Simulated assay, not measured.
Amino acid sequence: MTLTPAPTRNTALPLLDTEVLRTFVVIAESGSFTRAAEQVFRTPSALSMQIKRLEETLGQRLFLREARRVKLTPEGEVLLSYGRRLLKLNEEAVTQFLAPSLEGTVRFGTPDDVGSRILPGVLAKFARSHPAVQVDVVVGRSVDMLERLDRGELDLVLVTSGNQGVQSDRGEIVHTEPLVWACLDGGIAVQRTPLPLALANQGCAWRSMALSALDRSGLAYRIAYTSENCAGQEAALLADLAVAPLPLSMVRAPLREMNNEAGLPPLGEYQVLMIHGTAAGSASEVLAGHVVDAFRGLR
């Protein structure tokens, strides 16, 4: 492909098309023209033509086509950073003029171990687009969040399915993830009998899933450590004092996932549900949309 040299300083610089930039970012993030085409509802050939014109405009090759995926060139990596920022700025500008002006307060409840993964990004984005809305965040157990929602004290809550009192068909499923057994890599806690466990307090979905699976398997265990959140569980794992059930995405070195060791039963998947209060208003609905987008970005 012959690429046009970049314009000189005396030449008017071309403007980048926002839709083409969005296509470029989706391809870069998915690693595939085919997968990107499914997301933007166009054909792979149409996306290929867009990228070809973009490469000609910039005078740089942006992608390397490999057997089963595409890979960014160094120039493509630079454009990806610019593209994300430009799209974000475009969204903020359009929202400023076209989105309805929102005011008031949204009372948002979430379990710590779930909300902490998305809250910083969600709150920052929501504050930029709707600065007049106050967001009150309450952190606690899923069962407590649900009770407060039913009493009208909260407008929007996240809960994990599997808890007592949490019905999986009551809310919208916004995230699904495998729950796995975790331990210290190279540790010996898994070899102890009965098996020492580090669990969250009662009311945690991960705790109830783990205990139910162990009881069905007949494996001997003891609850050695409990904590309000998974930070305490991780501390026990790092000290090689116990094993624990954790979401797969939270198992990071020096921890590791345990695969069929010591007869440990599989735990399956847990779900994060988003439930709206009966009196939730427009601001709550907008915040809910940001929450859904944030979880989608975790997949």
Rank of each mutant, 00 (worst) to 15 (best):
R69P: 02
L58Y: 00
P131F: 05
L146Q: 09
E92M: 10
L154I: 02
R84I: 11
I173A: 14
A99V: 02
P74M: 08
V133Q: 05
L123P: 02
P131V: 01
A198E: 04
L102T: 04
I173T: 14
R151V: 03
S81G: 13
G59S: 03
T160G: 10
L158N: 01
F63V: 01
E172M: 14
V174G: 00
V114M: 06
D150V: 08
S116R: 14
R84Q: 12
G171D: 07
N90R: 15
Y82G: 00
D150T: 10
G162R: 09
A198G: 09
L179R: 05
A182H: 08
V157M: 06
G162Q: 08
F97S: 10
S129F: 00
L89S: 13
A200E: 15
L146I: 09
V78L: 14
T110D: 10
Q60E: 15
Q60S: 09
P74R: 11
D150C: 07
R192P: 02
L158F: 09
E56C: 01
E77I: 06
E153Q: 15
F63I: 01
N90G: 07
N163I: 06
A67Q: 11
V157R: 08
E92A: 10
Q96R: 12
G140P: 11
P100E: 13
P120H: 10
H175F: 15
V174A: 03
F108V: 05
V106N: 03
V135L: 02
V122H: 08
H175S: 03
R84L: 12
R85L: 13
L154P: 02
A93M: 12
T176D: 13
D144L: 14
V166K: 03
T160C: 10
H130D: 01
G83F: 14
E56N: 12
N90E: 15
P194Q: 11
G104F: 03
D136S: 15
P120E: 11
N90I: 06
V78H: 14
G121A: 05
L64Q: 08
L58M: 01
V133D: 05
V180H: 09
L62M: 06
M145P: 04
P131S: 01
G104H: 10
S142L: 09
A189E: 09
T105R: 15
F108W: 13
G121T: 03
Q164R: 15
G152I: 06
S129V: 04
G109K: 09
E172Q: 14
A93V: 09
T176W: 12
F108R: 03
D144Q: 14
V137H: 03
V180S: 01
E153N: 09
S129I: 04
P120W: 11
G104Y: 08
E91D: 15
R65F: 05
G83R: 03
N163P: 06
V180I: 07
A198C: 07
